[in-house]
Amino acid sequence: MQSDTRPLALVTGASTGIGFELAKCCAQNGFDLLIVADEPQIEAAAQELRQHGGTVDAVQADLSTIEGVDKVYDARLGRPVDALLANAGRGLGNAFLDQDFHDIRHVIDTNVTGTVYLLHKVGRDMRTRGRGRILITGSIAGFMPGTFQAIYNASKAFLDSFSFALRAELSETEITVTCLMPGATETDFFERADMLDTKIGQSKKDDPAMVAKTGFDAMMKGEGDVVTGWHNKLQSAIATVTPSGMLARMHAKMAAPGTGQS
């Protein structure tokens, strides 16, 4: 990786979906890229992103592990990260007690532990330099109990809350923290989470390019949070005034296995 006058953006979960589109936004706006995913497709993503100019380095690493995060951090080769877009995440459908605990642990370690560890390492570097941009992909799912998706929603509730707290702690610095909170988006998330037979899995979803551009623009403006799409804005507003028990029952109708079948 060659250091030059272009800023460096580190984007996790960048092989497909929102993460790939976030990386594309960065490349189109003058950033060099260090992109990360836990699958070989990250190399194909890097090849495509190089068409937008600048350098693009790809790392295949398991961000649910401390070793994986260290591998990504070391791949900077000492170059400072100007923008960290912490987007990597995993979902998991079905009832909690029916899930394999290895899968549960993987979601928690990817969405929470690995994300927080990377933020801690890169955030400290940004504090030393006195500047930087952070975008954390949370979700409107964090506003409601995730019946039949309990671990995922709880992990996103953590990230949503954490983003606001970190932003407040850094409010007197030149480091901005933005929380991107999309709703259901047209990616391979629902297939990986084994939720294709659910009502939400078969519903119309948002365009990942639109979601990413909204998040990228908010990050560049230094905004604290952004919910994408009017429907999601309405849903998140309703969630703040609706009793949790009712939200849990509503979520079950969307996420219970078999609800998507006619």
Rank of each mutant, 00 (worst) to 15 (best):
A61T: 02
E39M: 07
Q51N: 12
D57H: 12
L49W: 02
G53E: 09
P40L: 08
V69N: 01
E39I: 06
G53M: 13
T65G: 02
H52V: 06
E39W: 09
L63Q: 00
G54L: 14
A46P: 01
S64G: 08
H52M: 04
A61Y: 00
A37F: 03
H52A: 14
I42Q: 04
E67C: 06
H52D: 09
G54F: 06
Q47A: 11
L49F: 06
I66L: 15
V69F: 00
T55R: 14
R50N: 13
A58D: 03
E48Q: 14
V69Q: 00
E43C: 10
V69T: 04
V69S: 00
L49T: 03
T55Q: 13
E43S: 15
Q60M: 15
L49K: 01
P40E: 11
V59F: 02
G68L: 02
A37P: 07
G53V: 06
V36M: 06
L49V: 01
P40Q: 14
Q41F: 07
V36L: 04
L49P: 04
E67N: 15
T55F: 09
V36D: 02
V36E: 01
E48S: 07
G54Q: 10
G53K: 12
G54C: 07
A45R: 09
T55L: 06
D57Y: 12
D57T: 15
G53R: 13
G53Y: 03
G54H: 13
A58R: 04
T65L: 09
A44G: 13
V56N: 03
Q41H: 05
D38W: 03
Q47E: 15
L63V: 02
G54M: 08
E39Y: 10
V36A: 01
E43M: 09
Q47M: 07
I66D: 10
D62K: 08
A37C: 12
A46R: 04
D38K: 05
A37N: 10
E67M: 09
G68T: 04
A61D: 05
I66C: 07
G54P: 05
R50P: 02
T55Y: 12
A45W: 12
E43I: 14
Q51G: 11
E43Y: 14
E39D: 10
A37W: 05
V69E: 01
S64N: 02
Q60D: 03
V56D: 04
A37E: 05
V59Q: 05
E48R: 14
A61K: 00
E39H: 14
D38L: 03
A58M: 10
I42D: 02
R50Y: 06
I66Q: 15
V36T: 08
A61M: 01
A58E: 15
E48C: 07
L49G: 05
E67W: 10
H52L: 09
G54V: 12
A46L: 09
D57P: 08
A44D: 14
R50E: 12
A45D: 15
S64W: 00
E67H: 11
E67F: 05
D62N: 10
H52K: 06
Q51S: 13
P40F: 15
A46W: 06
I42Y: 01
A46V: 13
V36N: 01
Q60P: 08
D57R: 11
Q47R: 11
E43T: 12
